[in-house]
Write a protein that binds this DNA or RNA. Structure first.
Lengths: 199, 199
DNA sequence: ACGAAATTAGCACAGTCGTGCTATCAACGA
DNA sequence: TCGTTGATAGCACGACTGTGCTAATTTCGT
């Protein structure tokens, strides 16, 4: 077998195999054997890169977060007008296409497991803090630009925006037919519009 | 062993054992043996009431939904003023105390499993339709009472309210320290207030 | 008090699980 | 070209899984 060019790249390949298995068979189905089979490799090879199953799942979740973060920073670099940029940034966290839908399903599955897995819970907390902070930053940016209605409690609005985001995400993931991407966009846009025009 | 007075009651006892195991060890830990041990009975007895594990988990989720529905109809029977009643009804779906928190944790765990379990998915869809309909009914009731701002898209507002609800639920369940019950109430109340006063 | 039915108990089977471990194979520096 | 290191392969072990199944026990109608 040819030596892998980049170790990190190999680990990502295996993590993506985890994603595929989780999407097909759930976290329950993400056994070491199943992931190795999905990745087209052996149990031994898998254990060479991840000593335990917990490490494997943790890395798979870390990768979900990193992918989303990368997309968001890419949008920020693009430097669109504030109102467009805000919408674009927030939409990167929603399951609006197949790629983000896959990440969302994995995120939901691992979030549930994090209720009883301390390592995953720590990862989830970091990610949640990050996303919560992003919502706060969005509200602050709108406020500074004078695009926010007066008398608005910024912290509370950030919390509400965060809830709308994850609520939409959960619904779009679990019931895509009842809440297609276009509808998700509509609701998010309406919420942002109200954030500006209200009171 | 004394004969159980009511068969349904016995099934609920066992389902509640499922809840306790899921809260402690996750859905993964909800094996037939573990549930039987938690319920203080035997595998055979458990299988007498639920032929398969899937039936057991399905019933446990059904019970979550029924408990919530019962609480909501109780609030509706109480017949408080509209604005108070709306808030009270919606709060019954949120994990604001230990009982509802437990239900929420089970709901989240089983929602995740429903991604790959057809039976659970059907249950989840029914429950989601119900809750989504409740949100629509709330918006309609406010509109009929003239408590809703003009020019508001009722269907879209129902969708947004539903997102806020489940977003708050997910956050309160996964990060209770970051979003304590009082804060959840605040955000929900603010959302309802804006629904009335806006534009 | 006796038989039928409801309920409980728990063994047996054929799997799958995570991980420890050794052996093999490929690649690269010397 | 040889030895070292990186990487893969897969067996072995003990524990756990869901379910089929039989036997024991308890309860209730009569």
């Amino acid at each position: 077998m040819p030596r892998v060019v980049d170790a990190e790249q190999r680990r990502q390949q295996l993590a993506e195999a985890v994603w595929r298995v989780i999407r097909r068979d759930g976290v329950t189905g993400a056994s070491v054997r199943a992931v190795a089979r999905e990745a087209g490799t052996s149990m031994g090879a898998l254990r060479h890169w991840f000593a335990t199953q917990d490490q494997l799942l943790s890395f798979a979740m870390t990768l979900v977060v990193e992918r989303a973060r990368d997309r968001i920073t890419a949008v920020l670099r693009a430097g669109a007008p504030l109102r467009d940029q805000v919408l674009a940034v927030l939409e990167e966290t929603l399951p609006l296409d197949d790629e983000r839908r896959a990440e969302g399903e994995v995120w939901l599955a691992l979030t549930a497991r994090a209720l009883v897995d301390a390592d995953l819970a720590a990862l989830r907390d970091r990610a949640a803090t990050e996303l919560s902070g992003l919502c706060a930053a969005v509200v602050d940016a709108l406020a500074e630009a004078g695009e926010l209605a007066e008398g608005v409690d910024a912290a509370l609005e950030a919390e509400r925006l965060y809830a709308v985001l994850d609520g939409l995400a959960v619904h779009a993931i679990t019931r895509p037919s009842a809440l297609p991407p276009a509808r998700v966009r509509e609701v998010l846009a309406a919420h942002l519009a109200e954030l500006r025009d209200t009171r």
